[in-house]
Design a protein around this nucleic acid. Structure first.
Lengths: 122, 122
DNA sequence: GATACCGGTTACTTCAACGAAACCGGGACC
DNA sequence: GGTCCCGGTTTCGTTGAAGTAACCGGTATC
């Protein structure tokens, strides 16, 4: 059985999907929400350096793709809770592996960068 | 034992690493090279839609980070072979998982997108 | 001597993503 | 009546990654 979708094909929709996954802040939001539902301000605090605008954009995009659920709970002050959908939770698995890899191999990459900078004549 | 690096910290070098991994074409190049060493033109053919400029840039970046090895074999016509380093091969594991996820869940995401477009009033 | 192949490079342009900063309504608290 | 919090929105500016297209030297082929 061949696969229905192939990332190597120029027009394959999986490329769009991959692009979304690779967006700067997607991995952070999914990682944060993997610990449980969270409110906007909580997310903003946890993901250091993210601006409210970008956080909103990222959440909307993930919501559109069915990865994140947004629950407005009314009341005052307003309460909005974001959570991963089952699809989002399934994405978390490979994303966590990537995150893990990144955190684990930082020293090797820093080393390689230093070495190639030295080779060029830094 | 706490982790040495945490992606959630604003200044953590793992963020740079993650950024590189998330670059538009990284996953394609690593995936292609996972099948074995390959020449420039071969890569260009296999990764549909990539331009020579972007391919060069991506390969150089991956080389700098120690993920790809470049071997110029002289002769004429010139022969240059690119291959994954052990570090690159270790990255392939999580990347393949992400690629797999993307290819597998295309229909669900397309569905979700269609539904939220309809909800807005398409 | 025209053509094609390899492995790129160069110059220019475009465009989406990202970021900074200010602001919004509505309530609650003081 | 001033201030704070929540969950954003709006405007504007910047940046850098990506795309387009043309070209390069060297060789070998016809």
């Amino acid at each position: 059985m061949g696969k229905a979708y192939d990332v190597m094909a120029a027009t394959c929709p999986s490329r769009t999907v991959l692009h979304r996954i690779g967006a700067r802040w997607t991995v952070f939001v999914v990682t944060a929400l993997a610990d449980g539902p969270m409110r906007f301000t909580e997310l903003k605090a946890r993901i250091e350096g993210i601006t409210p605008k970008v956080l909103t954009e990222t959440l909307r995009a993930l919501e559109t793709d069915g990865l994140v659920h947004r629950a407005a709970l009314g009341g005052s002050p307003p309460r909005v809770e974001y959570s991963l959908t089952p699809l989002g939770r399934s994405l978390w698995v490979p994303l966590q592996a990537v995150r893990d890899w990144a955190e684990t191999h930082v020293p090797e990459i820093l080393d390689a960068q230093a070495r190639s900078e030295a080779a060029v004549g830094g």
